[in-house]
Amino acid sequence: MKMDLIDPEFPKTLERFGAGSAFECFNCGSCVAVCPLVSGHFPRKMIRYAQLGATEKILRDAKDLWKCLHCGLCSRTCPRGADPGELILSLRRFTLDHWKRWPNV
């Protein structure tokens, strides 16, 4: 398994793509419970990756980002105001910015 170090500076990187309050997340999982996609740990998994700066993992699973319907349920439900929906959009922008620079995207 290939492993890469997480990037502690990722929040700064992500500023350019939006996602202002995503790092308020405390991993409660409410977003997963309400998400109509019922797909694994989406969207919490992406939030956790972003929080850690696990860019490798984000780009590895980037296709999941485009499953999001942007219905807004998670953002309305989040007890921390972390706005998961907005984070998903920001991660799409981040992924596009890295298009073809990463072998698996």
Binding site: M1, M3, L5, I6, P8, N27, H41, Y49, L52, K57
Partner: peptide
């Protein structure tokens, strides 16, 4: 990696669904 932190800490992080995470 010569450009980053001198150590790294690897862990199977249960908050990241048990995935291996490496922290500089």
């Amino acid at each position: 990696r010569a450009d980053g932190s001198s150590l790294k800490v690897a862990v199977n992080d249960t908050l990241t669904f048990g995935e291996r995470v490496e922290v500089p």
